[in-house]
């Protein structure tokens, strides 16, 4: 119930061209299936060691370099500490899952494509088309990293874009997300020109993008959107760091990045004042 209006089924499309340091879905960055490991659930039963055909599990833990993602360990794990994340699904299979909640969608609810970066997958358009065919409302949560053609196909099939503008400062954007800012803004312009309904979603990170210049630029972007749905400021959450450990990275969570309630209120006040 968090990803757009009403009750929604969110489809996470794996794979993201960005690598934001604060990424809250690190398990969806890689386009390939991955084994997630929740250390706190492990009871040390050793089933994974026996099940693994390549010796990736052992007394020293889980050696991801050896892992071939066969998921035998996840199959054998009794506690769910090891879990396969990601699967190939057809549009039909996804729709079938989404249809289960049909009774709850009403006029507002439907399907949300999230990720990862959903528009990095060309099949996203086919999925949107299929949703449209069966009368399910569509929301796309994107950072705009998509080619022009995909974007232009997606716009008429999408009821609402949740558009993530991570930062408006070129250097910072490149530094923290690993991608330049300019193509993102270009995409936003393309979608805007094509008449997309857009809601801005902007992460707020203490000490990174909590400056008034950024707020001013965000308001500027918002004002230029013709079919504007609103803007949400989303405070950074350190839980994202814990999630990174599930895919074998260090806990990247940073307590100092969490903005205070006053900061969030101030940012909201400034931006709304400029709209």
């Amino acid at each position: 119930m968090h990803d757009g209006p009403g009750v929604r089924t969110t489809v996470f499309l794996k794979g993201c061209p960005l690598h934001c340091e604060w990424c809250h879905n690190p398990e969806t960055q890689s386009p390939d299936p991955e084994i997630l490991f929740y250390k706190n659930k492990c009871i040390g039963c050793g089933n994974c060691v026996n099940a693994c055909p390549v010796g990736a599990h052992g007394a020293d833990g889980f050696d991801r370099k050896r892992c071939v993602i066969c998921a035998s360990c996840a199959e054998a794990c009794p506690t769910g500490a090891l879990e396969l994340c990601g699967a190939d699904m057809t549009v039909g299979e996804i729709l079938k899952t989404a249809e289960r909640d049909r009774a709850f969608y009403g006029d507002a609810g439907g399907v949300t494509l999230s990720g990862g970066e959903p528009l990095a997958q060309k099949n996203a358009v086919a999925l949107l088309e299929a949703c449209r065919d069966v009368g399910l409302s569509t929301v796309v949560d994107t950072c705009g990293y998509a080619d022009r053609e995909t974007l232009l196909s997606a716009v008429p099939l999408t009821d609402l874009f949740l558009w993530d503008v991570k930062d408006t400062d070129e250097d910072r954007h490149e530094k923290y997300t690993g991608a330049p800012l300019e193509p993102m803004i270009e995409s936003l312009n393309i979608a805007n020109e094509a008449g997309a309904r857009i809601r801005l979603r902007c992460i707020l990170i203490n000490g990174v993008n909590t400056d008034e210049e950024h707020y001013g630029r965000l308001a500027n972007i918002a004002r230029n959107i013709k079919n504007f749905d609103g803007i949400d400021l989303i405070p950074y959450h350190a839980y994202a760091g814990t999630k990174a450990t599930f895919v074998g990275r260090n806990d990247s969570g940073r307590a100092d990045w969490i903005p205070t309630a006053e900061q969030v209120a101030r940012a909201n006040r400034i931006i709304r004042g400029l709209l």
């Binding site: 209006p5 009403g6 009750v7 909640d101 009774a103 709850f104 969608y105 009403g106 507002a108 609810g109």
Partner: peptide, 14 residues
């Protein structure tokens, strides 16, 4: 928020 209100209404309708 507004989305949440819609969600609750939809939940009751469902």
């Amino acid at each position: 928020g507004d989305n949440g209100l819609e969600a609750l209404i939809s939940l009751l309708r469902g």
